[in-house]
């Protein structure tokens, strides 16, 4: 995600906005007519895969699916480089999801067609970041945004790349997490070096009144060796109707989903909830990335 300039990100988001009526099914598009998109998912990610499938189909393209890894040549010991070289001959673009860090970059070295990184390893998930940015732009605003990122900030890859992208727009960021799951120090330093104002706290109550966007993430049970400790943290970082009484009326709450119980269901029907809309915005964003990468929009 760090490879993208602000101008490039804006261009993708502008394109997504133009394609939004198509994503909603209000207009028809043949942008990917006659194009074949291969979806190579080496680890399960139903939501990302389905949203790419929907994006391709809304643009009139055809999908080639790897199917299960167990049934493929990967189980016969074929390396990813060879798989990519072969599939390059079958499709016009490859969307790759792979458990190893840097696999998408390597795939791009071997592919004869464009590669879209649908999430590699534990570091990068750029299409998620694009859709997060698009959601913020549509539901709030990007420039000088006051945003709180809450939950698992240590391991949550979506928050790491979102922070870097938001730094291009001069965001004021507050990191809300239990001490065990704080944002890695090198990222905090890096963002401060870019001239950003960063606050760190473990309290949602103290933060909620001062921000325009709250980006929640899931705290995973397996990060805590002590179940009691997990219960405490889980309850401290919970968005409820009570908490939202002191919120800015224009606050928007985002979540990459799936949620467990960090946002209580009573919040869903409030004007603050933008997480289901965010899931929809994955479609126009991925449509834009597909169309730009394949070159049908310049």
């Amino acid at each position: 995600m760090k490879d993208f300039s602000r101008e490039e990100i804006d261009y993708v988001l502008d394109t997504a906005e133009k394609l939004e009526p198509v994503a909603r099914g209000e207009e028809r598009s043949k942008l990917l007519d006659g194009k074949i998109i291969a979806l190579l998912f080496f680890e399960p990610s139903t939501r990302t895969r389905l949203s790419f499938e929907a994006a391709v189909q809304r643009l009139g393209g055809k999908i080639l699916n790897l199917g299960s890894v167990e049934a493929s040549s990967v189980m016969k010991g074929e390396n990813l480089a060879d798989t990519i070289r072969v599939i390059s001959n079958y499709a016009d673009l490859i969307v790759l999801r792979h458990p190893l860090d840097g696999s998408a970059r390597m795939a791009a070295e071997f592919a004869g067609v464009p590669i879209i990184n649908g999430g590699d390893g534990s570091v990068n998930h750029p299409t998620q970041t694009f859709l997060d940015l698009y959601t913020i732009r549509r539901e709030s605003h990007l420039e000088g945004l006051k945003i709180a990122l809450a939950g698992d900030l240590k391991y949550g890859r979506t928050v790491h790349s979102l922070c870097y992208a938001l730094s291009l727009y001069g965001a004021e960021m507050t990191f809300v997490s239990p001490p065990e799951l704080r944002m890695p120090l090198e990222i905090v330093r890096d963002l401060q070096k870019r001239g950003l104002s960063i606050k760190e706290t473990d309290s949602l109550e103290k933060t909620i009144g001062d921000v325009e966007v709250l980006y929640m993430t899931r705290v995973q049970r397996e990060r805590f060796p002590d179940p009691e400790e997990y219960e405490k943290v889980k309850n401290r970082l919970k968005v409820t109707g009570d908490l939202l009484r002191s919120a800015d009326p224009n606050l928007k709450i985002l979540h990459p989903l799936p949620r467990v119980n960090e946002i209580s269901p009573e919040v869903d029907s409030t004007q603050y909830a933008s997480y289901f809309e965010q899931a929809f915005y994955g479609i126009p964003t991925r449509m834009a990335l597909l169309a730009l990468a394949i070159g049908v929009i310049e």
């Binding site: 390396n79 480089a81 792979h98 458990p99 190893l100 860090d101 840097g102 390597m106 590699d120 390893g121």
Partner: peptide, 13 residues
């Protein structure tokens, strides 16, 4: 030193 890096796998790189 990232054991999960693709360059530490059996890829021809």
């Amino acid at each position: 030193t990232n054991s999960n890096c693709i360059s530490n796998s059996n890829e021809p790189i």
